[in-house]
Amino acid sequence: MTPFHLAGFDLDGFVAATLAEDLGEGGDITSAAVIPSGARFVGVMDTREPIVVAGLAIAEAFFRALDPEVAITACVEDGAAVPAGSDLLRIEGRARAMLTAERSALNTVQHLSGIATLTRSYVDAIAGTGATLLDTRKTIPGLRRLEKYATRTGGAHNHRMGLWDAAMIKDNHVAVAGGVAAAVRRAVDAGIARIIVEVDRIDQVEPALAAGATHLLLDNMAPATLREAVALVAGRVPTEASGGVRLDTIRAIADTGVTYVSVGRLTQSAPAADIGLDFSVA
């Protein structure tokens, strides 16, 4: 399996912290009591439903952390769309280590594959419209890098990674600054290159653009209003539809001509994929 590298993400630290949370002070007392120290297992991780796979290399890292000599074969790659019953990983190693790492490895692959699978369904729903799917910052604290990796694996593009890589002026910023134009001018004066401005009314579009917005987030607008806003912007900056987007509404939204559609549900509401790991004595 290709070594896993994700910018800004400490895989070894994540694995160590996750295992420490599970092992506590006493370790895996069940496996220590029940499983002979020299026992070996073979295992197969498989999916019980159609999924888009994400996180296999992270699962491998959990097993290797506890058994550096474990033999692991990846049956598919992250990003693969596989049917129910597909094998994902085959594993052979020390039984105690495999049992101890099992839950952490499964939780991670289930969670990330669930995000990737839901994301792919949204990507497929807007195919051919010209719009690009974006994720959001609605992520579980501490897991943002992984969850945004999963949305990319499912075919989306990442929005801001955090508060640092672009300004996003929202209604609360506008209220304090004294208006859309005033808020944007402050961001421009601060030397910020990427200035995303949330507007929820058509009459905010021109003031935001005139002040220096580089991207407009069209918040909770109906498709007819989105079309009006896109026509008014006329390609001067990218446009993004956002707010309450669902799988059954995203196609109509994307068809309005917006550049992007952002969906918080990708990370906020994705169900865990139904993935199992069965062991037998080697």
Rank of each mutant, 00 (worst) to 15 (best):
V245S: 05
V230S: 12
A182M: 03
S86E: 13
M98I: 14
G13D: 09
G93T: 11
A241V: 12
T259I: 10
T259M: 10
A190Q: 14
I202N: 01
T108W: 01
G38Q: 12
N107A: 06
R194Q: 14
A175H: 11
A54S: 15
R185Q: 15
A71R: 14
V233F: 07
V82D: 13
G178I: 08
V109L: 09
F63C: 05
R48T: 03
E92D: 13
S31Q: 06
L66M: 11
M45W: 01
L99C: 07
F62S: 02
K170I: 08
G154Y: 07
L23A: 15
L99R: 06
A101R: 11
L66D: 04
R160A: 05
R201L: 09
A182L: 10
S113G: 02
L232M: 15
A127N: 06
S104H: 10
L209G: 07
H159G: 05
D248H: 12
I140P: 00
P238I: 03
I169F: 07
L266K: 06
M98S: 06
S37Q: 14
D278A: 15
A254R: 11
A84Q: 09
L133P: 03
D28N: 03
N220D: 10
A17Y: 00
S37T: 12
V184S: 09
G24M: 01
T267S: 09
H5G: 04
G79N: 06
A224I: 01
V205T: 08
A59F: 07
A252T: 14
L266Q: 08
Q204R: 06
A183P: 03
G26M: 08
A84T: 06
D189S: 12
R201H: 13
V44W: 01
E240R: 01
P223K: 11
I192R: 08
Y260W: 07
A282I: 03
M221I: 05
V245K: 07
